[in-house]
Amino acid sequence: MAESSSNADGSSKMIGLILFAVVILMLIIAMLTEGSGEMAFHPMDQFVVSPLFGEGAVHWYTITNATLWMALAIGGIALLLVVGSRGRAIVPSRAQSMAELAFGMVHKMVEDICGREGLKYFPYIMTLFCFITFANFLGLLPKSFATTSHIAVTGLLALFVFFAVTILGFVKHGTHFLGLFWVTAAPLPLRPILAVIEVISYFVRPVSHSIRLAGNIMAGHAVIKVFAGFAAVALISPVSVLAITAIYGLEVLVAFIQAYVFTILTCVYLRDALHPGH
């Protein structure tokens, strides 16, 4: 028994080593063949914004693949939240309970973080959450276009949040909103230094807010594409298919988590505007 199990251990270790060696070898082969121009790595092609109909320049009004996938996101949202809830059933259908789940999650998040007065802004936050979630998940479909992988999109969303929160803060609290930067809990000599740090971190918010989302989505899609490029080589294709599967699973997780993170950060920023006194 003991011998056979140690044998099994030894053989599995051997298999692992062999697999590792094979992968390394294949990577080297792949590099070499790529150099010779047989393999094509174009992980960024999927992000190109191009007109849906015909060729030519992309004007602001042109209907592009971005337009199409944003429209599909709208369609998905309408399907889940509008068509799904049309029964208005006391005992909900599957679609309705999913819609209620999404509603309840975001509603509770807003209420928990911003308090009851934050619920006035719940529709805006729900809009952001729905758009990002659906865009992320639709972007995971093969041949699709991930609208949220673009800094133009996430940047606009983040700037929308930034300006909305800043304006709201000044409208609600006037100059008291600046108290956000003046940490009264700290000793007086430290306060100017902390104020500088707070101001910097406040203005970095939209940058991190937008790049976090776009970067995550873009990186995941690019990595999947790189592995897909390796799949063209017969020798390493099993490994690369496995890797694509694993990363795809991870990306499904990331798609939701990033939408969740974006929403929760929006709530946190909104709380700062509603209650600036820490």
Binding site: W60, Y61, A73, S85, Q96, P123
Partner: peptide, 29 residues
């Protein structure tokens, strides 16, 4: 292009949610 269509999408989604979906779901709840 992206900004224009994103704004259009957000307005449409906001309209869908605030006019139809959210009141309906909260009424059901």
């Amino acid at each position: 292009n992206q900004i224009f269509w994103l704004l259009v999408s957000l307005v449409v989604i906001y309209w869908l949610l605030s006019r139809i979906a959210l009141p309906r779901i909260s009424a059901v709840l």
